[in-house]
Design a protein around this nucleic acid. Structure first.
Lengths: 347, 347
DNA sequence: CTGAAAGCGCTTACAG
DNA sequence: CTGAAAGCGCTTACAG
């Protein structure tokens, strides 16, 4: 079932059919109507593959993801897919095996004449050797949520340094004297920037983090790091998890250790994933402005600019109750109270 | 940069270039080598769009998802994408807005000459009017995790009736006298089948569920249903959550109510999502055999068969500690113990 | 094994 | 506004 079939049936030329299906196509209302009607009757649908070949525009954007252990990524992925659909673009989903060269993955995307690639570097190290010349094909590649030290690639991220500072501010107001940072993958910009901001702000108050172990952005690691700290006699009065999933692991470990949150220990995370709002956690955290970040990413891709480093979006404090004290006033204007529910008594 | 450019540069015909890039293509080792070398040098990559048009096979499979509130779906999605890549296929990701007709979504997929569509019906009612004639384009459509009452579409699901029975068996062995089912979306086959199996098995033991409220497969609903039950003076001694996310909500509500798990109340779920293994929950559940289900789905798509109802895969008990008693012996041969960790004392 | 050529289903100048 | 035709970048019989 092709445009030729429809043309024959409708008694018009094949070009007319094509024009009828192209918005802005120069056809009379009459022929357009005839064409659409017979197309409907025959169940005809224009072949997007053929159109792509003819127009030299595929309308396809690649979304490249690693493992999806961190719930932050599926949420972002889903929003991206919706935003692309709203713009009439299609999303090609590729999984990136961290064992393989990311260039291979990008090549299989490039074969589909993608207009851009968005990389969710769940397990990408900060400086994969090959990513540098990835744009050789001329297609813009955008890193989402992380950036490379060299800033040679476009990237959209949360302002993680400011977010780290904010976390420190919040914990300081709660009166911390013995704060700790539980890191994620130390090779990532998210880990590094959050730690840098956190440490800098603490230093201003004359404090140094008790410890800053690092390993991976995983729940298990949050648990393990917390247990090990206590096994070594280190008892922090505040924990900043490099992301929510780590902070949640820390909360579970603290519960197992019998340490009360937030009375004895404050905990703060980063991301604001769905799970952070669960009653068992009620995690105070720095929310990444996901929608704004996605809009920005898509805007940049529409209008390819010179790289120029990561595009930063401010994080926002979500107050829930895993940190002591209270915040009836704003901290630097960017603290907001989430929901109305107080922390459960049972905590 | 096309095959013509490479051909000119390598001093061969364009056909030769094409053959060099086609496995099984009849070319001498010498020319293939020449071609590959200059292709590499020029950064040439065959155009998959053009190939699709020429071969009439796109190699694209559509993955159609709704909202991703339930972590079960991202996990499945990610595994599907990997499995497809391993078979040399590409995944087109489409989000389905439940407000819109699913036919629209399928059409935009069909335009890309997809070879098959896999629908994750996160918020699809059991009988959307339009899904019946979806295969009009001749492309197989497969429902993953749910089936329609009419069974007019291919589907791959867990054996939810047997799973529901298994849940009942487990709770009966734990000595339940006042079991409850907290349902999900009552219009879905997953809800209906799990409830049917659960009720049937309880009936054999002379029991009827105290209640079976239903609403949606959401965490919030698990919390709310549990709180409302208790507000109405209904105090179950066992809860079967229609899926893990509901069961987790129930666990959080029970903790808030001060009811001890598993001493006073047993809780069992369905799916085995990552969160179920978190220390705050340690949820005993029926695991869906995701890998086997995905393999099966792909096998069916390779070899399109007459529909013939849902293809069922047996669920498997994962024992963690949210149910009283213990299972040193097998129940019907399909109960397995998960991990080595005992339920935490603190529960 | 190799090359010339038709064809996949569209879009889009080009004439009319 | 409309149609005939070239062209998008491949694959694959068809001859040689």
């Amino acid at each position: 079932m092709t445009s030729v079939d429809v043309a024959r049936e409708a008694g018009v030329s094949q070009s007319a059919v094509s024009r009828a299906f192209t918005r802005g196509g120069r056809v009379s209302a009459a022929t357009r109507h005839r064409v659409m009607e017979t197309a409907e009757r025959l169940g005809y649908l224009p072949n997007a593959i053929a159109r792509s070949l003819a127009t030299q525009r595929s309308g396809i954007v690649a979304l490249i993801v690693g493992e999806l252990h961190n719930p932050f990524y599926p949420q972002a992925l889903s929003q991206f897919a919706q935003a692309l659909a709203a713009r009439g673009k299609s999303a090609l989903l590729l999984t990136h095996d961290p064992e393989r060269d990311i260039q291979d993955t990008l090549n299989s995307a490039r074969a589909y004449q993608i207009e851009a690639a968005i990389v969710f570097p769940t397990r990408l190290n900060s400086a994969p050797p090959s990513l540098g010349d990835v744009s050789q094909g001329g297609i813009p590649v955008l890193l989402f949520n992380r950036h490379l030290p060299s800033d040679e690639l476009l990237s959209v991220t949360c302002d993680n340094v400011a977010g780290g500072r904010l976390a420190a501010t919040v914990l300081l107001r709660a009166g911390t004297r013995r704060p700790v940072f539980i890191g994620g993958d130390p090779e990532t910009s998210t880990h590094q920037d959050r730690l840098a901001g956190f440490t800098a702000r603490l230093a201003e108050a004359g404090l140094t983090p008790l410890a800053a172990p690092a390993s991976a952005f995983r729940y298990d690691w949050g648990v393990q790091a917390t247990l090990e700290m206590h096994a070594h006699g280190l008892e922090p009065d505040a924990i900043f998890g490099a992301n929510d999933i780590i902070a949640i692991g820390a909360l579970d470990a603290l519960r197992q250790l019998g340490r009360r949150v937030p009375q004895e220990v404050s905990v703060i995370g980063f991301d604001d994933i769905l799970e952070s709002d669960w009653l068992a956690y009620r995690l105070t955290t720095i929310r990444q402005p996901l929608s704004a970040m996605i809009e920005d990413a898509l805007r940049v891709l529409d209008d390819p600019q010179p790289s120029g480093g990561p595009r930063l979006h401010p994080g926002e404090l979500v107050w829930r109750g895993s940190v002591g004290g209270n915040f009836s006033g704003n901290v630097r204007g960017d603290i907001r109270h989430a929901g109305g529910a107080p922390a459960p008594e049972a905590r």
